[in-house]
Design a binder for these strands. Structure first.
Length: 578
RNA sequence: GCGCCCGUAGCUCAGCAGGAUAGAGCAUUCGCCUCCUAAGCGAAAGGCCGCGCGUUCGAAUCGCGCCGGGCGCGCCA
């Protein structure tokens, strides 16, 4: 697939698709600033005004396509009333092929109406770029990693993992569209206390299976889920009762490995069903001893370590945090934190990522803050490590909050969710809110929500477009190449609104990549559908005069292209019929 | 106590590197298929943008202080 090599080291250095939205802004800025300089030359205005004024879409369409605020911004430095500045500048403006009209309005806004030629060029640019329309190069040449889900393999994945999975996966796609080389990674906590606890839980269940619940009573804070019982049973059925008399350490180790591998296989399968595939499954256990030793060596060299009360400490206070942390307990075992430090040392120093993004639950934010100090202690710029701290999904059923916890066994599994709603709906839903909003997920509603979900609204727009193309095709009308048409015939407000919005895709992708905000894409594509539906209701394609019909057909086709590109980023299917 | 996130229409949420009259969906009411997919479109109604002060020509947007909700502050992960 072409998409999978996007941004990869093997990608040819092909020319970037045109970005008509950015071209318009640049043209307007240059035209206005050049006029200002001319006015300065003539002695009409003082010199020194900044070129970086704001050019943005006005909220009210009656104000034109783009609005510039330089007159208000310059009022103070130029010691002149905003409207007067605007008038003086506009008197010096020269013709620009993208600009039709410039007006002064309100307190001193300069409103620009773009030319039919610009509108036509937007469509030509989309047609030319095709499947690549929307690509930008804001992260060109960067090697990035997105680590997400990284659920404890001690049980099935829950809804929080579902949200993190979609956010991380989609963000990775977006970053690829901004020109970066991106790897998706799952960090597997296959060692440590939680695994230990799992092994003790398994041990108890194993003995129970053979009718002995006395010798190894179930640990108080153990994993109560049915899956643990199932693992023990499966082991017993597969390998018999040999472990009853085995050495305790060996027994626990065998049971834990058995369960872990089953869980990992299941997670991989569930995620695949969810259209998520990783480049790397990184095992925590592989960090020992090399990465841990190397990380400690660097920290030692930077004076970040000391020993106290038998434990090894990280002097985090020296690196901008309030409290020191234990890295190796008095009992000789390393803490999770040490593992995580070694892990990130590996990401940056061994594997050379420029930027790493970790998608974590918001309950880890304290850890995220502390991590900046660990980065400094290793001599790495903290800015290279970014976090998406995602608020957890609150699951409700019949109006009541369902607590999610692996240990109590009450978690709603990701696989259960996908039995209830489509992957398209789930992906779109989890990507439709900003990461830092707390989501409420009503299980009862989720099933009914199907016909109500915005994903169908978007898919419907695409299906409608395909239907128009099909119908005309059946009448022997085939779409002509865009560059041979008179696209300036598209002058209806609904047509212009739609075209302007299509022109904005590259910009939206750049912002989504900059802000690490995948929800930008769902919002954009819902709006695309809205503008298309409005156009559809206002303008007809079939039965219009040949030139206009072909121009509108092209607009339909290219709107479909844009929807397809964005749904592709979201990994949501793009049906031709509904 | 300290730290992070959130408070916008009845509900779910946009808008936030400041910009002109604050938006959408759902729900409510009323319209639109002899016409390319009505899973659609249009209209009405609905708001001290949590509160206060400040910065600014201009604040939902930035700063400070409150109030309310969520989450963290372990030799757990």
């Amino acid at each position: 697939m072409a998409r999978s090599v996007r941004g990869g080291p093997e990608t040819e250095d092909t020319e970037m698709p045109k970005n008509p939205g950015a071209q318009a802004v640049t043209a307007v800025r240059n035209t206005l600033y050049r006029a200002y300089l001319k006015a300065v030359e003539k002695g009409l205005l003082e010199a020194g005004a900044a070129e970086n004024f704001d050019i943005s879409e006005p909220r009210d369409r009656n104000h034109g396509d783009l609005a510039a605020n330089f007159a208000m911004l310059w009022a103070k430095p130029l010691k002149m009333a905003p409207r007067k500045i605007a008038e003086t500048v506009l008197a010096e403006v020269e013709d620009c092929p993208y600009i039709d009209k410039i007006e002064i309005a309100g307190p001193g806004f300069v409103n620009v109406t773009l030319s039919p030629r610009w509108y036509a060029e937007v469509l030509l640019a989309i047609d030319e770029a095709g499947d690549r329309y929307g690509e930008v190069e804001t992260n060109k040449g960067k090697k990035m990693q997105v680590e997400f889900v990284s659920a404890n393999p001690t049980g099935p994945m829950h809804l929080g993992n579902a949200r993190g999975g979609v956010l991380g996966d989609t963000l990775a796609s977006i970053l690829q569209w901004t020109g970066a080389y991106v790897e998706r990674e799952f960090y597997l906590n296959d060692t440590g206390n939680q695994v230990d606890l799992l092994s003790k839980s398994l041990e108890a269940r194993y003995f129970e299976h053979f009718g002995d619940s006395e010798t190894y009573p179930f640990p108080e804070d153990g994993y109560h889920g049915d899956d643990v019982t199932a693992h023990a049973k499966a082991y017993a059925e597969q390998f018999g009762d040999s472990l009853l008399k085995a050495d305790e350490a060996e027994r626990r180790q065998k049971l834990a490995t058995f369960a872990l591998e089953r869980n990992v296989a299941r997670m991989e399968e569930d995620l695949k069903r969810y259209r998520i595939e990783y480049d790397v499954w990184f095992r925590e256990s592989s960090l020992y001893p090399t990465d841990v030793d190397e990380a400690l060596e660097i920290m030692e060299k930077n004076g970040a370590l000391y020993e106290s009360e038998g434990a090894l400490w990280f002097a985090a206070t020296k690196f901008g945090v309030e409290k020191d942390d234990v890295l190796r307990r008095a009992n000789g075992f390393y803490t999770y934190y040490m593992g995580d430090i070694a892990y990130h040392k590996n990401k940056f120093l061994a594997r050379g990522f420029d930027t790493v993004i970790d998608v974590w639950g918001a309950d880890h934010h304290g850890h995220a803050v502390r991590f900046a100090s660990a980065m400094r202690a290793m001599g790495l710029e903290p800015e290279r490590l970014k976090f998406i701290l995602m608020q957890l999904v609150r699951l409700t059923q019949g109006g009541e909050v369902v607590r999610m916890s692996k240990r109590t066994g009450k978690a709603i599994a990701l696989s259960d969710l996908l039995d209830e709603i489509s992957v398209d709906a789930a992906r779109f839903f989890f990507c439709s809110r900003q990461c830092d909003t707390q989501m409420e997920f009503d299980l009862d509603l989720a099933v009914r929500q199907d016909s109500d979900n915005p994903v169908y609204y978007v898919q419907y727009a695409h299906a409608r477009i395909c239907s128009i193309l099909r119908n005309l095709e059946a009448e022997g009308i085939t779409p002509k190449a865009a560059d041979g048409l008179d696209l300036t015939l598209l002058t209806a407000p609904e047509e212009r609104e739609l075209i302007r919005h299509l022109a904005d895709l590259p910009n939206q992708i750049a912002i989504a990549g900059r802000d690490l905000d995948p929800s930008r894409m769902t919002k954009y594509v819902v709006e695309t559908a809205t503008y298309f539906h409005k156009f559809y209701n206002a303008c007809r394609v079939r039965g219009e005069e040949e030139g206009l019909m072909q121009a509108r057909l092209t607009l339909c086709r290219l709107t479909g292209q844009v929807i397809k590109n964005v749904l592709g980023i979201l990994k949501v299917s793009c049906p031709e019929r509904m």
